[in-house]
Amino acid sequence: MSPGPYENSCHRESARHMLLTKEERQRIPSAFDDISFDLCRRRDDVIMMSADLSHYVDLFKVTKELPDQFVEVGMAEQNLVGVAAGLAKAGFVPITSTFGSYASRRCFDQMVICMGTSKNTGICIGFTPGISSPAPVHHQGTEDLGMLRAVPNATVIDPMDVTDFAQALDVACETPGLVYMRGHRGTTPKMLDPETFKFELGKTYPLRTGSGVGVISCGHASQWAVEASDILVDQGVDHSLLHVPTIKPVIEHEVIDYCFAHDQIVTIENHQISTGLGGLVSEIVCKVGRGPRITRIGVPDSWAPGGSIRHIRQHFGLDGPALAKRIEEVMQ
């Protein structure tokens, strides 16, 4: 195939600047504590909410220093989202927090009916999404992106690091209706340069440019894709990386341009390989037809084991070396 727009020097330049070098990357402890506190200090209409998991999603400072902007509902996710929708109807911007497994499975009806049919902003954050929880299936929400992507008018965001998590949350507060976001808890990497990365709803971000195989990823999996990419760069394997933080609504022509500029596409997601990012990219490319082959990598229609994230990634071949090998193999 002929070189596409991702070959030109302009994109190469911006891509290099957006992704911090290995040496520049940092790890930020309890990142969401600062992100939420900073947001609430800037906006007194924002209310952080918890279903008895505040300490497990790094909500500390808001609860102590801005108690009027914190609402605890107890271990009751349906009520969490229902009350949030009510606060939105009273003029506030509610942000619910719980684990992604509960956020998606236990209160899906409330998200759809109470927030999804409303013009008021209602934000639900699912923390420790996908396999990033050490406990197995009951704590691992690996279907959430697909479920929420199917909801008309919903906004679905899966940020990769502290930079786009914080920026996307700001944008979410200005987005009408239901916004489902995946969250990062604990020590969270800073991989994107806040000086050059500007989150815009739907926009896709080339992190590395190249030809041959194009790797599309979102959320935690964009961290994994960068790890694999670092290995491939060292090995001199040509490829490119595209980070897609907005699962819905994504700017489709950007995905199409990217996919048709490559011979092979690999999608990597912290999610079941059906219905999520891989499904999204496949659907978009199918609209055009005669596109490149798409290899979907993620949780392969199975339950993940529990354990450390390192162990679970290795189990599914999602660790950096395994991913690098799988990406390289699609070109053979």
Partner: peptide, 25 residues
């Protein structure tokens, strides 16, 4: 109409949220 009310049981939480929000204001 304040809410979408066809899915039973979902209105009470929203009404309680509105009541808390109004009091906060």
């Amino acid at each position: 109409f304040e809410i979408t009310s066809g899915s039973l049981g979902t209105g009470v939480s929203q009404a309680a949220g509105i009541a808390l929000g109004e009091r906060k204001k």
